[in-house]
Amino acid sequence: MDISSLNSGPIWLTLQLASVTVMILLAIGTPMAWWLAHTRSKMRVGIEALVALPLVLPPTVLGFYLLILLGPNGWIGGPIKTLTGSPLSFTFTGLVFASTLYSLPFVVQPLQSNFESIGSTPMETAASLGASRWDAFFSVILPLSRRGYLTATVLGFAHTLGEFGVVLMVGGNIPGKTKVISIEIYDRVEVLEYTQAHILSAGLLLFSFLILLTVYSINKKLPVHVS
């Protein structure tokens, strides 16, 4: 077995992609989930359906539209190209953009149900004790949301690790830039290098299992706050 022929590049790239994506998702997913959990707007169901779309769409469909959108003539890719000289398609940034959309429901949905179960009373109680909205969010809501954030982070991370279709469509297969583990596995199988494909697949499987295991055991230990 020739492990040395195994390039660690795709592994690092994958971890990098997943980490950056999750951080962005937590930043934009928090206000989105908060809004969805508390709004009485009629827009709510529409937005909820949009957020859930990546769950049911074939990744190639999402990837196809993103490719057009991010490409040199796309609504996003075009202006970016005039600004920076290159479009977003087939770049790491493009991948992050695509992954963020693709994994959005995995972060927004757990956060939304977390905020819904907390309800509006802790915010009101904190306000009656003199806390501003931001203060109340950080001093009361966040500590009560540890489970929700843990679930959202891990699901978002793990889901980004495993994406294939979207990455292939938007990022292609450029070593060091867009070639992630799932693509590398596909490549190895294509050229019948089953050993390397095995190592990578088993590694991904084991890694995914371990983080899920960790989450579930931490979740079990975290106190459930019932008000």
Binding site: T125, A127, G130, S132, L144, P223, H225
Partner: peptide
């Protein structure tokens, strides 16, 4: 706004912060 009013509120379900 409520957080700037000099009020104290006590509810039926105490609403203490569990953390």
């Amino acid at each position: 706004p409520v957080n700037q009013r000099a009020i104290g509120m006590v509810f039926q379900d105490s609403r203490l912060f569990p953390h």
